[in-house]
Amino acid sequence: MAKKPVSPEALHKVIMVGSGGVGKSALTLQFMYDEFVENYEPTKADSYRKEVVLDGEEVQIDILDTAGQEDYAAIRDNYFRSGEGFLCVFSITEDESFQAIQEFREQILRVKNDENIPFLLVGNKGDLQDRRKVSYAEAQGRAQQWGVPYVETSAKTRENVDKVFFDLTREIRSRKMEDTKTSNGGGKDKSKRKKLKCIIL
């Protein structure tokens, strides 16, 4: 128990969302313990924490692995509220799971009330190319429409597993830094930031 104190700034809360059976837990466990769990057992809500070195800085990733099953849809709000970033997972072998992400995205945006919440679209089961039902272009198109990155992973072969967690954490961290900057730095930074944006149409 004798852990050194962690500052809240270095603890990033990631939430795994997506339909049941798309491999949220498999991705999480692969990331946490480098192992692929073959047998399927529906998750209710599990949390994990891992300390990693991200770009030379020690941070903790707090992962909340949520239930994909429809029964839990009504109580998801409470889980989503605590998240700082989301990995929205579907299975490239199952079109329904891809269709379902729209609802997840909407729910997250509604709960967080923030259109720019760190968010990554993840197409899992990339090792099962022969059973692919969702084309890369289709998923990429959806991600583009939302303005979020799309990454294909395989929890089995560990392909891109670290990448999705690291990318998202990086995004969360930069969001936080930006937020503290704007709250501390006063008007100067804000106006600077605004300059990059363009009001069009």
């Binding site: 599990d46 949390s47 509220r81």
Partner: peptide
């Protein structure tokens, strides 16, 4: 209704309550 329960896997016998904004 406003509470979420999370099973903390990597901490012995622990569970977590998410009560926004507290944990």
């Amino acid at each position: 209704g406003s509470l979420a329960v999370v099973n903390v896997r990597d901490l012995k016998n622990a569970f977590k309550l998410l009560v926004f904004p507290d944990t």
